[in-house]
């Protein structure tokens, strides 16, 4: 099943048994149904529970908060994460604060689905990840699943959660296939996934970067290097225990983060590890992040902007003090190119 279908199935299955759940956002009921993730929901659940909204992200989040006061569990969808920045007042000043500011008297069980763009010249305002910004805020939960199985299980957990959840999806993953269990199941928020066990080096990534990291893992394996690959899945809460246990074992770390370096999650992970025990590192840890500039549009510039499997492979070799051997590397040609327009 595709990632997009897993998203749709999670919503449909929950909506069948919980009448308090509704889905809204610009384009939710349109024929393309947010890249397939809401297709057919309006037909099944009707326009009262699946509907288009005006283009007013801040009021929409505010209205989801208000609806949640009346026992609803709203899901809001933004076709690009960047649009969600218009709603930071309601997300940060309101949704995130409510449980705390009123001593737990009112809760805000809302899910804000946001989609990160990449490729086909999405450019500076259609490709931001911003997960570190949201993860900075107490009162929010932030997840960014990569596999179809996790995206369904985590969306179900997010809808059932009593806190506001920023649910970060990636446009490039929408057509990725994977096994997805039938029926309702939950992937817990706040639990990382060890995608591949290894002993030589720990590679920590999230969302689409897990795909690149897995490719790098294959190349490293061919070089005889056993990499442990960890998919964060959740940024708040962040599962530091899983990362800590891994780095204690390997002593080497590369964090791959589709985001800017300053004040990012990669730095946060390394800082938390150093605080715990700085002696666990056999070599300086490495952060692989975006250059310190917005995403460019031209295909050549854009390609240079993103971290690739090759970059991860090379950084791993450096961290392991091993010679970089490009001949062993399985090139990124394996990736299906993304064709737009959106």
């Amino acid at each position: 099943m595709k990632y997009s279908e897993a998203l749709r199935e999670a919503q449909a299955q929950i909506m069948r048994y919980d009448e308090s759940v509704f889905v809204c956002g610009l384009g939710v009921p349109d024929p393309k149904g947010v890249f397939g993730s809401t297709v057919g929901l309006e037909e099944e659940f009707g326009p009262k529970r699946v509907f288009d909204t005006p283009a007013c992200e801040n009021a929409t989040v505010g209205m989801m908060i208000g609806a949640s006061f009346q026992g609803m569990r709203p899901i809001m969808v933004n076709q690009r994460l960047d649009f969600t920045l218009l709603a930071l007042d309601q997300i940060i000043n309101h949704a995130a604060k409510w449980k705390w500011m009123f001593g737990g008297v009112q809760r805000v069980p809302i899910v804000i689905r946001v989609i990160v763009g990449r490729g086909w010249g999405q450019g500076a305002q259609h490709s931001q990840t911003m997960h570190a910004l949201f993860a900075h805020i107490p009162g929010l939960k932030v997840v960014a699943p990569v596999s179809p199985k996790d995206v369904k299980g985590l969306l179900i957990s997010s809808i059932e959660d009593d806190d506001p959840v920023i649910f970060i999806e990636h446009r490039r993953l929408y057509d990725e296939e994977g096994d997805v269990p039938q029926g309702i199941y939950r992937v817990p928020i706040g639990k990382a996934n060890v995608v591949q066990e290894g002993v030589d080096i720990t590679l920590v990534a999230l969302s689409h970067m897990v795909v690149e990291t897995e490719k790098a893992g294959i190349a490293l394996k061919e070089k005889g290097i056993s990499a442990e690959i960890i998919d964060m899945r959740s940024l708040r809460p962040l599962d530091m225990d899983t990362i800590l246990n891994s780095v204690k074992k390997t002593g080497r770390l590369v964090v791959i983060d589709d985001d800017w370096k300053l004040c990012g999650i990669a730095g946060e992970i390394i800082a938390a590890l150093v605080e715990n025990d700085h002696k666990m590192f056999k070599a300086p840890p490495i952060r692989l992040t975006w250059p310190d500039m917005p995403t460019p549009t031209s295909v050549v510039l854009e390609s240079a902007h993103y971290t690739t499997a090759k970059d991860i492979y090379e950084a791993s070799c450096i961290c392991l003090d091993r010679r970089v051997d490009p001949a062993l590397f399985i090139d990124e040609e394996r990736e299906q190119p993304f064709s737009g327009p959106f």
Partner: peptide, 14 residues
């Protein structure tokens, strides 16, 4: 202000 509109939306849905 949107919270009130959201409560009203819930009243309408329910």
């Amino acid at each position: 202000i949107p919270h009130a509109a959201g409560c009203a939306l819930a009243f309408q849905i329910k």
